[in-house]
Design a protein around this nucleic acid. Structure first.
Length: 315
DNA sequence: CATTCGTGGGA
DNA sequence: TTCCCAAGAAT
C-alpha cells in the first residue's frame, strides 16, 4: 500500500468517532515503513534483549542523548546482567559506574528498583504497567516504554520526541506544551494502532529523534511531511510562552555536580576543605550554598558524611 | 502546574 | 560564544 497524497485530505478526520477500534490513522503506514528502513542499530533494540537491560537503557536515556548512554549501558549490562546483581552492588560502585551521565539520583533509583524487583517480583522485571510504574525512578513514560519494548504490549508512549511529532503533524504547532497534557495523552491513545503498537511507538520516537527534530527539522526526509498539519499551515513559529532555558552557572546543580565529580574521582574520603577546592568560584563566595548542596546530596543518599568533617560516596 | 535535578555537544 | 536541549521523575 502506497501512502498517496490523495489521502492527505482525508487526514483531517476529527477523530471524534468513538469507535477507534479500527485505526484509520494515516500516519501509521508511512511512519512504520520509514522506521523499518531508517532505524538506528541500537543494542537495546536487538531481539531477545533482556527486559532488565531495556529498563537500564530507559533510565539512562532520561534527558540524556543516546551517544552518551551507549558506552555506560554496555558496561552496566556486562557488570550487572540481572537485577539481583545490581541489587547487591554498593552505592559507591554504582555512582562511579554512572560516571558523568548526569542526574546521578537516577543511578540510586535504578539500584532501588533492582532491589524491589528482587524482593517483590522474584528477580524478574514485571511486565505489568502498574507494577513497573510503582518501581523507583519509573514514571509514566518509562513504564509504558518497558511494557512496550520489552514485552510487546500496547501503551501510549509519550516522550519528548513523540510529543513533538504529534504536536506538528496532528495539532499543527511547532512545540508541545511544557508539561504533558491530558489532551496529548488522549491523542496518543487514539492514534495507537491495534496491531504492533510497540513498533508504532518506537517508530514515532525514532522519527522525532532523527527527522522531526526540535531545531531545523528535516522535513524533506519526512515520510509524512505531505500531511503534517504544522507544515501545511506554513510552519508557524512557536507562539506559547518562551521556553525557559535551564540556568546553569552558579546554580546548586553546578555545585552538586562539582562535588560529586570530586568524590567520584577520589579513592579516599575528602575533607571539607578539599571539597571546597573542587567547586566553582561562584560557590566559594557562598558558603551557604556549599553547605546546602552538601546537605542535599547527603539527603539524597549520594554522599555519606564521616566523622571529622569528611565525606565519601556511600559505601 | 511549576521546579529541581547533570552533562556535554551541536547549531 | 552563547544558547538550546536530550527516550523524565519526583515533589
Amino acid at each position: 500500500m502506497t501512502p498517496t497524497t490523495a489521502s492527505a485530505k482525508a487526514t483531517r478526520t476529527k477523530g471524534t468517532t468513538t469507535s477507534a477500534s479500527k485505526n484509520q490513522n494515516p500516519l501509521h503506514t508511512p511512519i512504520i515503513a520509514w522506521y523499518e528502513a531508517n532505524q538506528r542499530d541500537l543494542p537495546w533494540r536487538e531481539p531477545g534483549c533482556p527486559a532488565w537491560h531495556i529498563l537500564i537503557s530507559e533510565i539512562m536515556l532520561q534527558q540524556t542523548p543516546v551517544v552518551r548512554v551507549l558506552p555506560i549501558w554496555r558496561e552496566w549490562v556486562e557488570r550487572w546482567p540481572t537485577p539481583a546483581d545490581l541489587a547487591q552492588a554498593s552505592p559507591a560502585d554504582i555512582i562511579r559506574a554512572w560516571g558523568r551521565l548526569g542526574y546521578p539520583r537516577r543511578a540510586l533509583r535504578l539500584h532501588a528498583a533492582a532491589q524491589a524487583i528482587v524482593e517483590k517480583h522474584n528477580g524478574e522485571v514485571p511486565s505489568d504497567h502498574a507494577e513497573l510504574l510503582a518501581l523507583p525512578g519509573i514514571g509514566s513514560y518509562t513504564a509504558a516504554a518497558v511494557a512496550s519494548f520489552a514485552f510487546g504490549q500496547r501503551h501510549a508512549v509519550l516522550d519528548t520526541n513523540v510529543r513533538r511529532v504529534f504536536a506538528r503533524t496532528v495539532t499543527g504547532i511547532e512545540y508541545p506544551p511544557t508539561a504533558v497534557t491530558a489532551a496529548e495523552t488522549k491523542l496518543a491513545t487514539e492514534l495507537l494502532p491495534e496491531q504492533r503498537a510497540h513498533v508504532w511507538a518506537v517508530a514515532v520516537m525514532e522519527l522525532g529523534a532523527l527527522v522531526c527534530t526540535a531545531r531545523s527539522p528535516k522535513c524533506a526526509e519526512c515520510p509524512v511531511s505531505q500531511q503534517c498539519a504544522w507544515r501545511l499551515a506554513g510552519s508557524p513559529p512557536h507562539t506559547g510562552p518562551a521556553r525557559k532555558g535551564q540556568a546553569w552557572a552558579g546554580t546548586d546543580r553546578q555545585i552538586r555536580g562539582a562535588l560529586m565529580a570530586a568524590l567520584r574521582s577520589s579513592k579516599e574520603p575528602l575533607s571539607h576543605p578539599q571539597l571546597v577546592i573542587e567547586v566553582p568560584d561562584s560557590a566559594l563566595r557562598d558558603p551557604n550554598q556549599r553547605s546546602r548542596c552538601l546537605s542535599g546530596l547527603i539527603e539524597d543518599g549520594l554522599v555519606e558524611p564521616l566523622p571529622g568533617d569528611h565525606y565519601q560516596l556511600p559505601a
